[in-house]
Each structure stands twice: as C-alpha cells, then as structure tokens.
Design a protein around this nucleic acid. Structure first.
Lengths: 335, 335
DNA sequence: GTTAGCACTTGGGCATGTTGAGTGCTAAGT
DNA sequence: ACTTAGCACTCAACATGCCCAAGTGCTAAC
C-alpha cells in the first residue's frame, strides 16, 4: 500500500473519531472522505496500521480508534495548523485591552484559552529571570514577626511573613531595610542567592542573625515570585467533554490541584521556541493523566501556557489557539 | 403515631441513606436500628413523613430517600454534633505549627478540611475590617505606569498596576507617597473611602489628578484585599464521591470557579457566631448547586470557612470538622 | 495493488420472563 | 387509638434469548 495513503487513512480516522467520539469503520471512512479507493482497500490499510500500533479496535467487530502512538504520528507528521476564525482572533485581540496588571492579564488569558479550546487552560507565572529588584520593604507585624515584601520592576510582588526568633526593634529593621535596599536594588532576582550573603556580611554583628533570616525570606520570595505558581480555568470543561465518556475525571482533578505536579509537567515539556509541544496520554509522566493530553508552549522568557484535555481532542485547532494566545501574551508582557 | 418516633425514623433514614447511598425501606430500617416496633408501623410513619415532604420514593417499589426538607429537619432538630476522633484533633492541632504566613495557613487549612471531610473545602480570605494601613508604596514601572502597593498590619498585601494617563515624575511620586503615607497610615482599611478624598484635596493642584488616580487604586485595593478572594482544595473529591452516582459535576465546578458566585454564596449564609450554617440543595441560591450542600461558618472577624458536597453527606461529622477547623483558625489568626 | 464477495464475530437493542424489595391496605389484636 | 400480621400489587433490576447491523478478515478474481 502507498505510504501517503496510509497516512491519509490515519488522518481520516483521527479526525472522524475526534469529531464523532465513536470507533470509525472502513465503510464510513470511505464515504465521508473521498479517498479514491474502496472500503476493502481501507481495511487492508487499517490492518497494517493496527500492526504498527497506531490504531486499535475496542472489540472484534467495532471500528478503530487511534492509540497514543497514532495521535503522536498525527500531531508530528500529518496535521496542519488550522487558522483561527475571525471571532477567535477578535477575542484574543481584546486581551490587549484593559489594565496591564500581570495578575489580571493571566487570569483573562486562562479564561479565554479555556473557552477557545473547551479544555482546562493553565498558565505559569512569567519567568522574570531578567526582572530586577525594585523595592524591598520590611514591616513589623508583631514583636517577633516581620513581613518581608519584595517588589520587582515587572510589577510582581512577593510577600512572606517570617519569624525572627527574638524581639525586633524598629530601628534595627529600618537600618537593615536601607542596607538591603541600597545593596540589592536593581539586581536581577535570579542573582539574589549570590548577592545576599555579602549584604548580610556587611551588617553589624549584633544584627547579623536577623539579617540572615531576612535574607532567607527574600531569597525564597525571589524563587517563588519567579515561576512557582500557576493559574488555571475551565475545569468544568472536563466534566462537559466527558458527559457520555468515562474518562476518569478524579485523577485529573488531583493532578490539577497539585501545583507541583503541573509545574513539573510543564517544565518537563521541551520549550521549542517556535512551535507548541504536545504530550499525549501515557507519554505523560503522571499516571493520573494517562488518558489526557497536554498542549503547551512557552511565552515571554520561558514560562509556559497550555491546555489539558482528553487524548481525543482536536489537536490542530487546539494547538493553533495555544500558539496564538502565547504569542499575544508574549507581546503584551513584553517578553 | 408518636412524634419522637417519627423523628427517630427520619433520623434513621437519613443515616442509613448517607451511609449506603441507596433508598432505604421499612424492613431494613427496623433490622438495623432497634426501634421497638415492626416494619408495618414504620411503613405508616413513612407514609406520614412522605406526606409532609420530608422523604420521597424514587419509584413505586423502592425505599425512601430524604428530601432537602428532610435533611433540613435532620440538621436543625435531630442530629447531634459528633465528637472528632483523636487523629482528627491531632491533624488540626498540627495546623498551629509552621509559619504564621496567612497565605500558608489558609492553604493548609483547606487541604486539611478537604481531607477531613472528603469534600471540597473553601476558605475566604480573612476580613480585615479592623485591619490598619501599615504602609503604602508607589513604584514606577514605566513612564505612565505606577504599581500601587498597600500593606496592612495583618500582613496582607495588595498590589495593582495603574495607568496614570500621562508621564509621571519620580519626584511627584515620592511626594505623593509621603503625603498619602502620612495621612492614612494607621487608618482602618474600611475607612479609606472616606479618608482618601481629603488627602487628595490636600495635594498641590498640579498633582491633583495623579493623586486622584492613585487614591482610586488604593481604594480598590482596600476592597479586594479585604475579603474578595477565596481559596479551595479537594475538587477531586467531587469526582470520587460520585463515582457511581450521577451528581452532575459540571455545574458545580463552574460555580467553584466563579469566585464571585462562591463569595456571594458564603456571605449570604448567616454568620451565626457560634454554630455552623448549612445550606441544602435547592435552598441554595445558585442553580448549579441544586444537588449540593454547603456547610460553613465564620472565623476570625467574619470571613467564612466551609465545605461543599453532595446533599447526601454526613452532616454531623462534617459540621463538627468545619466548626473545629474554624475555631483553630480563629485562634491562630488572632481573630 | 485493488476490489468484490462472503463467512464470521460481536455488541447493542428489544421483547419477554422472573425475582425480590418494598409498598399500601385491610382486618385482627392489644 | 396504636400496632401488627398478612397479602395483593407494583416495578426496577436482572436474566435470557433473539435478531440485526456494523465491521472485520480472507480469498479469489481483476
């Protein structure tokens, strides 16, 4: 059989199955797509595809459905990106309007993306490797408690309450504040771990231990404010898309709730700077997502946006949406 | 028939149904609970209960299940609070340990509560009606963009990027910062709307418009940092508890995602300062939650904690857990 | 390499029968 | 005035058997 037709058949199977949710047979296939051959020929081709592990039959006399491997081939070699509809473009454009508040933008982004794709949308907070320290504030909350605030020039704000271990005088705090501020303002967040110890060393010995504690606080803020959070929307789509399909939704919700899992997942996906990356079914490192696929891509300076949905999803459209949204996001955030 | 026994029967039905998930009939009832009468008597009682709308039969020859109204009576007049197990007490106690960071504590709280109850746990950020302005910071991000930061003495931090409309000089910003700080430090957040205009009025005329913009930013921060966010955990429990039961999970997820809906819901529930409040099924203002119940109570100075689950839930245990967690939370946060 | 034809498999739909849990009612007992 | 035993009745759930349509794999001819 001809190689191109084989791929064409796989493509037809994937598209029909995604759209109908039902195993697709040889006859239906030859009717819906005008391949120039008969159903018998298709059957032969399908037998080959099955041998290669690209499709499978749920039971003897049913049609075929694509396997993870089949989707993989489809995504890698067959599908072409679908252009977005005018309405979709418009929706994305409207992201450009409104306040430039990072939080706001990300929130609108996930909402939009989840509506666009009918899947769960996820976005990682922007990496701010290049972000600089703009301001540092120590606020005394209680005799032994200090609120540490770190403001970056990107507008991201980190906060953390730390326990000093002993009473803190206001004067000491003021002194340390100006000492820290003077020495780290303008520094890249990413460099804080290297810079902070020297600042501590410069402090008067009797304040050394407090300074050390504060420095730790700042450092952990520089970590977390950098990339360690995600935002998501559209979890209800999980229930909707599986209304007559028993994808076990429980494990997926669990995974989504564990930010650690999701962060891991996103960063494990290569960040091909131009295209989107797809992780299909069992390719996925987390067991609970064995029946799910993730479509993601980087934006700005390396953080990820993406969606999560059932393996049976419309990859071309979804990939187009993710890519488009990522591009706009990069533009807005000036990545 | 005797009134006390009628209630006893209702109680037995509720308990059996919650535990077995199946309609409960007269015979099973008389076997499992040693009521001193025969099944025929129970049948008569059940007929009365059904007339009163407290229980219902899914179909002719099935047992009865409690209606919303039945649960209501059960919660209000029959059930007694179950004491928590030692393990549960221990788990709650361990909340006391660890950093006093509000964010951290709330996060651990929802996790704990969702595990304790096997439901979705929700917590509203603490009200800070009594919270005072600790610090105000204006940070210039771009010629026309200013980041406004408002820090309260409770450790809550609000941030917002505002667009000034025209270029802002650094000196002007510094001046306004000290002007605002001097006039509103120590003020209650709740009073900001009244105080801010006078501060604006005191500013030099050429800065009036910028001051106005900044004041608006601060005011919106005082709103949002006060109570307008919620945190949740355990959405996966929704899927688990309904594995063989078709509570439509979709609408519930939608509701959970709409913070506005949840906030509305929580604040609409009375805040009986001592007991917990329960909202059952259709009593619920939001249609998507017609098959769900919310068990909530206030903590600290009026914010809410609670859980959301199917109407068929173990109310006594759940209520006990919610109440206990709320108490500890109040203690930790010094409400 | 493709096609027509055909025997074969099998899940799904449907009609039918059976079972058992559960009810409501009546009449008798306390 | 309640309670209880007994009984006829209802109805979902389950089982059984049947047929049908969809779909396959194979073979032989083109």
């Amino acid at each position: 059989m001809s190689e191109p037709r084989k791929l064409e058949v796989l493509r037809a199977i994937v598209e029909d199955y995604v759209h109908s949710r039902e195993p697709v047979g040889s006859k239906a296939l030859v009717e819906r797509h005008h391949l120039g051959v008969s159903s018998a020929t298709i059957r032969n081709d399908m037998a080959v595809l099955e041998e290669e592990g690209l499709i499978a039959a749920p039971h003897t006399s049913a049609g075929r459905i694509p396997t993870d491997k089949g989707y993989r081939l489809f995504v890698d070699r067959i599908s072409q990106v679908k252009p977005l509809s005018a309405a979709e473009r418009r929706a994305i454009h409207s992201l450009l309007e409104g306040p430039d508040d990072v939080e706001d933008i990300l929130e609108r982004t996930v909402r939009l993306l989840s509506q666009l794709t009918n899947q769960v949308a996820v976005v990682q907070y922007p990496h701010s490797n290049r972000a600089l320290v703009r301001h540092v504030e120590f606020v005394q909350l209680a005799p032994q408690q200090v609120l540490v605030v770190l403001i970056a020039d990107t507008g991201s704000v980190g906060q953390k309450v730390i326990d000093a271990g002993s009473d803190v005088s206001n004067e000491a705090l003021m002194l340390l504040r100006s000492r820290f501020l003077g020495n780290i303002a303008g520094t890249q967040l990413a460099l804080l771990p290297q810079v902070l110890p020297s600042v501590v060393a410069l402090c008067p010995p009797e304040l050394r231990s407090l300074a050390q504690t504060l420095a730790q606080g700042l450092q952990s803020l520089s970590d977390t404010s950098r990339e360690e959070r995600i935002l998501m929307a559209g979890t209800a789509n999980l229930a909707r898309s599986n209304v007559d399909f028993p994808l076990s939704i429980g494990p997926v919700l669990e995974a989504l709730e564990e930010q650690v899992v999701m962060l891991r997942l996103l960063s494990d996906m290569g960040d091909d700077p131009r295209g989107v990356t797809v992780s299909i079914g069992r390719e996925n490192p987390y067991d609970g997502l064995a029946e799910a696929s993730v479509v993601a891509t980087g934006y700005g300076s390396g953080a990820k946006v993406g969606i999560l949905g059932p393996t049976r999803m419309d990859y071309p459209t979804t990939m187009a949406a993710v890519r488009a949204v990522a591009r706009y996001l990069s533009r807005i955030l000036g990545g």
